[in-house]
Computed example of a mutant assay.
Amino acid sequence: MPSVTHEALVELFKNRPTLAAEMLQDALGQPVPAFTEARVVSSDLAEILPSDRRADVIVVLLVGEQQRPAMAIVVEVQLGVDPEKPYSWPVYVVQTRARHRCPTRLLVVAIDAEIARWCARPIDTGHPGLTLTPLVLGPEGVPVVTDAAQAATAPEVVVLSAMAHGQSEAAEAIGVAFLAAAAGLDEERRAVYGDLVLSSLNAAARRTLEAIMKSGYEFQSEFARSYVAKGVEKGREQGLLEAKAQAVLAFLEARGLEVPAEVRERVLASTDLAELDRWIRGAASVGDARELLATTGS
């Protein structure tokens, strides 16, 4: 079942049909024909694939009074490695090309850099000369939107920017730029996009934005509530890990034992609460700090 993050990204491309063409041209440097309209069309490719196997979004760029298809863009959001995709993606492209009788591009959106590299691998179909190389929009290709005017004209782009760069130093500026765009959105998009942006930002940037926004703001979508809850829980666990690690070191030092750099680094790097508890108990009896790691098989 697609995750809420997957569905959120898909909605960005559905809500702004020109987004696929903008990302191809502006972020990836791929030529896009001049068009008068970008239209989201049915992504059901049931002629060949089962009904539960369909592209995430298909956008057709139309030209002229006759609304002739100039290019089709198959948009696929990919959040993890899926060995089935190298087999289904070529089908999406070929089938879409046949249906709309126009050149067709595959745009894969991956907000994780490692997944983006996996998605970009050429797909050898087995037919001589027929190799499909996906066009991948990874985090490095997503623009960092900090300009309020740009955000106001392209709110989906600034949301995408927050999802890709929300943990960077630019997070606060991205969030403030989004606030400038939020006033022009309808109530539903303002709620959903606001939650997406806030839940994507690092803690410092989120605190700044929450202070700017009206008092008593609450996350309005289940996506953001669950996302932030996980972040809070992760923060609590990280704080407990750090406290226990410091307790181990403090116990050793209080007993007058020298703590070598390699021991200090190993203790501070631990992500196992049970291991840290064993070290706290062991710190009371070891004669040398190095013994602490040796007694636990580390």
Rank of each mutant, 00 (worst) to 15 (best):
V74N: 06
A20S: 14
R99C: 03
E169H: 11
A110H: 02
L198V: 04
H127G: 02
V40Y: 12
S215Q: 14
L130H: 11
D82M: 02
A191K: 13
M23C: 13
G166T: 02
Q167G: 15
L196A: 06
T271C: 02
E291N: 02
G184K: 11
A224D: 05
V10Q: 14
E65Q: 14
P103E: 09
T18P: 01
D195R: 03
A20C: 09
F223Y: 15
Q246K: 15
E233Q: 13
S43P: 12
G175W: 04
T104H: 10
Q66G: 15
K14H: 05
A46F: 10
A191G: 08
A180N: 06
A245D: 06
L49F: 05
S51Y: 04
A34E: 13
R53Q: 09
I73W: 08
A250L: 06
A261H: 13
L49K: 04
T96G: 10
V158T: 12
K234V: 02
V142W: 03
L241G: 08
G216K: 13
L9S: 02
R207V: 00
E291V: 03
A110R: 05
R264L: 09
A72I: 07
M213A: 08
L61P: 02
D186S: 10
A72G: 12
S270H: 07
C119K: 06
V157H: 10
V108T: 14
T208I: 09
A154V: 00
A254P: 00
M163G: 01
G216I: 04
G126S: 09
I212H: 06
I280S: 05
R236G: 11
D44N: 14
I174Y: 04
P134M: 04
V228M: 06
L135H: 11
E242F: 02
R225V: 14
M71G: 06
D195Y: 05
E265V: 08
G129F: 07
Y87C: 09
R99H: 03
P69H: 07
I115P: 07
L49C: 09
A250K: 08
H6I: 03
M71T: 04
G166I: 00
D288C: 03
L12Y: 03
V94G: 14
G216T: 04
L249G: 06
S3D: 08
T208W: 00
G29F: 11
A171G: 13
R290L: 12
L12S: 05
F223S: 10
T271A: 15
G297C: 12
A224Y: 09
V228H: 10
L268V: 11
S215P: 09
L79V: 03
G126E: 08
L249D: 11
A183D: 13
G184Q: 13
E22V: 04
V94A: 15
E76N: 05
F251A: 15
M1K: 09
G175L: 02
G235E: 08
T96C: 07
S168K: 03
L137F: 02
V41W: 11
G141R: 07
A180L: 03
V40C: 14
V75E: 11
A261E: 14
L106W: 05
V248L: 01
A283F: 00
L240W: 04
G194C: 06
K85D: 09
A261R: 12
E65G: 15
I174W: 01
V142N: 10
M1P: 13
Q66F: 04
R39D: 12
A152F: 02
E172F: 00
V77N: 07
R105T: 08
A254D: 14
V74D: 03
S43F: 01
